[in-house]
Design a protein around this nucleic acid. Structure first.
Lengths: 341, 341
DNA sequence: AACCTTATTGACAGCGCTGTCATTACTTGC
DNA sequence: GCAAGTAATGACAGCGCTGTCAATAAGGTT
């Protein structure tokens, strides 16, 4: 509590104090508490009792410094405003915790400089591994990664030249899949509405894939609207309103950068009295539950973010045990036909 | 390790190597890199150049062990599925990063045992501070906190007997405020629909406050429906459907445990052809953007989660500088009258 | 009984860094 | 030009723990 008061009286108990209390050597106490090694059952109990009595909490800084492997994993994500990355983090944390590991977190805010800085900072804690959803193909970052000599997983995409491992799916393929689906449904005049794509290069990859898909079938994108700022429901709503306002005839189908945006579009249609998908078709990306709970379930592509996080953590952990998980792991997306397109 | 080997293939460079390269003593290198202390400008430059050349990344485990204060802050949250805690985490991370601190994360899953375990685990990293959104008034946890002797902030509520500091607002007061508002709007027969409340005791507090508010005005809650599982849009939708199915006459107004649930309710009304708020009034809690973007903006109470996280981190940091931020900090909620009630 | 295992415990030397106090170099005042 | 002060640097010890190897005790073999 009191920061100023000189507090020599109550320093946290150390292993040596536990050892003394249990009447054994420090190293024996260490082994007893860590389990595994050869320690007599009675000795172990004595030590455990002493630790309990003193309210001993081991100091892993010291342990890691002396022994080797940390049980912390650095995690760098571009954002937490979007539930998508919270999902990834949840999957990560769940798997890590199973093995007594913990994430140290950094948020890059889609800023490459910040990402690099974070990387340097987090590496200084000597984590056992690193998981990141890269913000860009930053060269400096890549160099640091290569030099870091620790298991690294890049999540959310399947970049074939990932520094080490990658867990995710191809956003380009996802965009293409949506194009094929919409074409198959008979839509022709198609538009795209997205949030600030300069920063979110995975959204950009989806757009590129979408265009590719249209091209495959001999079509082209009839209209594109990119709005400033992070994706959100209100932004999507505003986007569709503006697009319909400025373009005649209106597009037959609109692909949004993600579900948040698309749900905004659905709301606009409700307000404007447009019936889905008759008057206009809308599609999103991510498969958020909000979109599926709409009176008209959103047509979208489900990504399994939590699983991506989980598998990423698992890869780190397995690597630490000496195994060699595959370099690129595909976590499939799935097109969810709803009733909006 | 082998001390004699001239150049162990690829261990990370240490401060001593940097010092050697710069032709100064270890401690001088340390001071040069940390800045502040008295080091000649030329010396500092030499050291910085050497560090750069060697690609030196300091080892904070060693630094913290030797020197004192860690730059990690333990964070324990009950969940990440709900955007609410992701928001808090975002605020925390933002403020911490400003000062070069980083969160180590643990998720309790609304489980008191797990929370206690996490606390023990995270404390073993000797964090400089601790932020948690308590899952319960767990006694063992509280004891650990008291003994921990580090700045602790409990977030999301303003528990007057917080172990150390608290940043948030009274959920009870929020519930009451909603009751008063709805009564003021003329609604009488009111119901509540919530998610698994056994675990989420802040939602329970809101319900209690809501009941209090009704009692204040001489009314009582006409119906209550608690559903299993975490809150979600589909769950709220299902909840309202079930309630309307089983109860006649239907309630005039329904207060949901949060916005996710309430938005589900709105969707159900859209599907069932009920007009809001004429046929039935709905209200939520949190002030999520999704609710505000609905064709009928949701009546709700806005909480400022990100700010709570930010202020919590700020309190920790200030405490570490020797200041004494106030024990209980209120981050006000605000009733947002929408068009659903 | 001498010998060999195996189980259990401990001594020792650091891990990489920083706090403390001491030392040296360089100014400045009179 | 010399005492006294300031700036810059370094030697040393130790943070709390674990890996390595050695030592001892206990049990089994021929």
């Amino acid at each position: 509590m009191d920061q100023n008061a000189p507090d020599p009286p109550s320093r946290r108990p150390t292993l040596s104090q536990v050892a003394k209390a249990a009447g054994v050597s420090e190293i024996t106490a260490s082994r007893a508490l860590r389990g595994g090694s050869a320690v007599a059952k009675t000795t172990r109990q004595k030590v455990e009792r002493a630790a309990q009595a003193l309210n001993y909490v081991p100091n892993r800084l010291a342990g890691t410094l002396a022994g080797g492997a940390s049980r912390q994993v650095a995690v760098i994500l571009p954002s937490l405003s979007n539930i998508v990355f919270a999902d990834v983090l949840k999957g990560l944390e769940t798997r890590l915790e199973d093995d007594g590991y913990h994430p140290i977190l950094g948020i890059s805010h889609y800023d490459a400089t910040r990402e690099e800085h974070l990387l340097h900072d987090l590496l200084s804690w000597r984590p056992a591994g690193l998981v990141l959803a890269p913000t860009s193909g930053n060269a400096a970052t890549r160099a640091l990664l290569q030099a870091a000599e620790l298991p690294v997983v890049e999540v959310m995409d399947t970049d074939p030249d990932a520094a080490d491992m990658a867990v995710g799916f191809s956003h380009r393929a996802a965009g293409r899949a949506m194009a094929h689906y919409l074409i198959g449904r008979g839509y022709r005049r198609m538009a795209y509405i997205g949030h600030d794509i300069a920063t979110d290069f995975r959204a950009l990859a989806r757009l590129d894939g979408f265009k590719d898909g249209l091209t495959d079938a001999g079509h082209i994108l009839s209209d594109t609207l990119i709005l400033d700022g992070p994706s959100s429901v209100p932004l999507g709503r505003e986007g569709l309103a503006r697009m319909l306002d400025r373009t005649t005839p209106r597009p037959e189908a609109v692909f949004f950068s993600n579900d948040d945006m698309a749900v905004g579009g659905v709301f606009h249609c409700q307000t404007a009295g447009l019936s889905l998908p008759h008057d206009i078709a809308l599609a999103g990306f991510n498969g958020l539950s909000i979109g599926q709970a709409l009176p008209t379930p959103l047509t979208t592509i489900a990504s399994n973010r939590e699983r991506i996080g989980f598998v990423a953590a698992d890869h780190i952990l397995r690597r630490l045990k000496g195994e060699r998980p595959s370099r690129i792991t595909q976590i499939d997306f799935r097109l969810l036909p709803g009733s909006t397109a």
